[in-house]
């Protein structure tokens, strides 16, 4: 079985040689994590889709500048994070909250349980929206994208202690927001 890092590097090198099917494989591998990051950061399905397209286009365009000694996914998340933060800076201050229930999973759950879970996730997203952008980014990278502290350090350029502090505060803020909404005892 091929090591994922080796496979990614081979795909990057093939893309650089002009093999678009290799980049298609990269898109297939990472469209889920990138779309999720954009969706949780931007809180809007349409914006997340546009952002994901622009992120992959930017990755493709800047691939010649990618340092092949670094882990590809970390570099990709770094491009994606910067793009989402830029978008949030450019965005008008009012955030549309109309499509929060978009595409929530859970195939096995019955209708009642599904409704409860969906409601909970909406509440989580709302709590997430109360965090400042840089705190939200760190929380999403950790809990949704499952990145390690070191990977978050590489993606964001923060120190490890800053990452830990932001995560700690983000958890506290989410817990406070959930408590304020009556979702936590």
């Amino acid at each position: 079985m091929t090591d994922p890092a080796t496979e990614e590097l081979a795909l990057v090198q093939a893309t650089l040689r002009g093999d678009q099917s290799a980049f298609q494989r990269i898109v297939e591998l990472y469209q889920g994590p990138v779309y999720n990051l954009a969706y949780r950061m931007l809180n809007n399905a349409q914006d997340a889709e546009d952002a994901a397209q622009e992120i992959f286009l930017r990755v493709y365009t800047k691939l010649t500048m990618y340092d092949q000694g670094r882990k590809f996914s970390t570099w990709l998340f770094s491009v994606a994070s910067n793009h989402c933060i830029d978008r949030l800076r450019r965005r008008r201050p009012i955030v549309p909250l109309d499509d929060l229930a978009f595409g929530l999973p859970s195939k096995e759950d019955g209708p009642e349980r599904y409704a409860l879970r969906s409601e909970l996730k909406d509440v989580v997203q709302e709590a997430l929206n109360t965090l400042p952008d840089h705190y939200r980014l760190v929380a999403i990278l950790r809990y949704w994208n499952d990145l390690s502290y070191n990977e978050i350090v590489e993606v964001t350029g923060l120190s490890e202690s800053a990452v830990k502090t932001r995560l700690h505060r983000a958890r506290k803020m989410v817990a406070d927001a959930l408590e304020a909404q009556g979702e936590l005892p």
Binding site: Q20, F23, Q24, V27, E28, Q31, G32, Y35, N36, Y39, A45, A48, E49, A52, Q53, F56, L57, F102, G103, L104, P105, S106, R117, L120, K121, V123, V124, A127, A139, Y143, W144, H168, R171, K172, V174, A175, L178, E183, L184
Partner: peptide, 25 residues
Amino acid sequence: ALPLALMQPASVKPPPALAAKIMAA
């Protein structure tokens, strides 16, 4: 200190045509 809600993060599925749109551009 993690709320249960964050212990089970829900991931959203990207639109089915996303990869095709990216590749077309």
